[in-house]
Amino acid sequence: MENKQTPLGHIGFSIFAWIVGLLIFFPIFWMVLTSFKTELEAVSIPPSFISFDWTLENYAEVQARSDYFRFAMNSVILSVGSTLVGLLFAVPCAWAMAFNPTKRTKDALLWMLSTKMMPPVGVLVPIYLVFRDWGLLDTRFGLIMVLFLMNLPIMVWMLYTYFKEIPSDILEAARMDGATLPKEIIFVLLPMAVPGIASTMLLNIILAWNEAFWTLNLTTADAAPLTAFIASYSSPEGLFWSKLSAASTLAVAPILIIGWFSQKQLVRGLTFGAVK
């Protein structure tokens, strides 16, 4: 269809598309812009777009007042930690399912998927009680476990679809060449699967970073990540929009960048390989 477009129509369509795109992006743009304003300018009517005194004060204050760094550290520890633990479990599992399938492999995969379909409220009560009784509430360890288990099915699935694309001939060749199983996995499978493993890790970091059911319900202070930190802005005291914006910008920036880099691989993970 597109090759029939006139140059003028092409430009017109591009302008239209950019307007739509910018509208969708506007809330993020506005958030970032507000983070550089003073609190007074942030609520001023009409809103100021460029002609305001740019300030970095809010960023300094977010850290000074609420110890932003500690929450950010928790977010990093929780998302990276749960992803690493997840890999430790998911790589062998996906390897087995991709290269040593049995009659029950398909059922096992679908069962894993079905656990992901379970709404978290269905298990909120027992998990909360177990955490309370075992002293896991508001601990990083407890949350890492929860986030790891929450995302394990996605990890196994994603790795499984990537491993499936590696011809089993190559692994058999390694076996003929005398490689033992650990050597086969370390020297042959993993180097070939690096891109798949990397995108699996990225998706999991994103999902864990943004997870806002368990992190809100199972933490209070010590282990609370950025989701909970931002949520604390929902009960405002005084003027806070610039600070909220600064804190929010800091909270989403790393994930936005990771997400932009891995957007193409994400589709596969998010749809369990149903759309590639």
Binding site: P167, D169, E172, A173, R175, M192
Partner: peptide, 19 residues
């Protein structure tokens, strides 16, 4: 195990290690 049999195999897809 395959490696203990002292045989070599050439695969249809060559099965070279791409990395």
């Amino acid at each position: 195990a395959p490696a203990k049999r002292g045989l070599s195999m050439v695969f249809q897809s060559y099965a070279l290690y791409p990395h």
